[in-house]
């Protein structure tokens, strides 16, 4: 079975689906998976393995591939052709679904490199203070509501909104950090492809991405909890 690594050299010609088969399917005509069973989404779409993807270019590539490979195009050619088209189109769909969102793309690149460990994120001290304030505001609100204190609940809700706004600002900052880290990963990937092997900068860039992604997920969980409180 062909194993495609994150450092494997792939110079994709965008939209050139004629090249799809040798990349995606191994010598038995089977789907090539990496060691964790993940298909190579970049290779499927014929795109270079970079996080800085042009969204419009991705959309156009996806649509042209799907128009060509969709099983409905093969309905007159019998069950085997349809089954093959199902497999190919599912790969294109799966690749597009994962790569079209920047943060899913980051997570996928790490997962493909076997580098997405469930590592506990350690929030910095100032964030912990904010989370502490947040918890207090939530408790105050619940308490005030429990006692039927409309004014108190209103004030607590106000505090909660301020705290949430601060978390959202922080989340936006983390997104910006992730973009910067992604650009560094792309540059390291360029270097690795030139060198034909993994370079230290790439390992470093992955570590950085993993840490930023962990931060982002921590904040998302917080925001989900806040949204939940807001609907109560």
């Amino acid at each position: 079975m062909t194993v495609l690594h994150d450092t494997a050299l792939q110079h994709g010609t965008p939209g050139a689906s004629a090249l799809l088969r040798p990349w995606v399917l191994d010598e038995h005509g089977q789907i090539a998976l990496d060691r964790s069973g993940t298909p190579d989404h970049f290779a499927v779409l014929g795109l270079p393995r970079r996080l800085g993807l042009d969204a419009q270019h991705l959309d156009i590539t996806f649509r042209s591939l799907v128009r060509e490979l969709h099983p409905d195009r093969f309905a007159r050619q019998g069950a085997a052709a349809v089954a093959q088209a199902q497999r190919h189109t599912s790969l294109v769909n799966d690749a597009y679904r994962t790569l079209r969102h920047f943060e899913k793309r980051v997570a996928y690149v790490l997962e493909f490199a076997g580098d997405l460990q469930e590592e506990r994120f350690h929030p910095p001290a100032e964030l912990l203070t904010q989370v502490f304030d947040l918890n207090e505001a939530i408790e105050a609100m619940q308490e005030a509501r429990g006692e039927g204190d409309a004014d108190g609940a209103g004030r607590a809700a106000q505090d909660l909104r301020h705290a949430a706004a601060a978390i959202r600002d922080l989340r936006a900052e983390v997104t910006a950090q992730m973009h910067a880290a992604a650009a560094r990963w792309d540059a390291a990937q360029d270097a690795a492809e030139r060198a034909g092997q993994e370079v230290p900068a790439l390992v470093h860039a992955r570590t950085e991405l993993r840490s930023v992604l962990g931060h982002a997920r921590y904040l998302d969980n917080l925001l989900t909890r806040l949204d939940h409180c807001a609907t109560l």
């Binding site: 069973g37 993940t38 599912s90 769909n93 597009y96």
Partner: peptide, 11 residues
């Protein structure tokens, strides 16, 4: 809401 055909492989 994943586009179909869609697939997933698990080990």
């Amino acid at each position: 809401n994943s586009a179909i055909p869609a697939s997933a492989t698990e080990e």
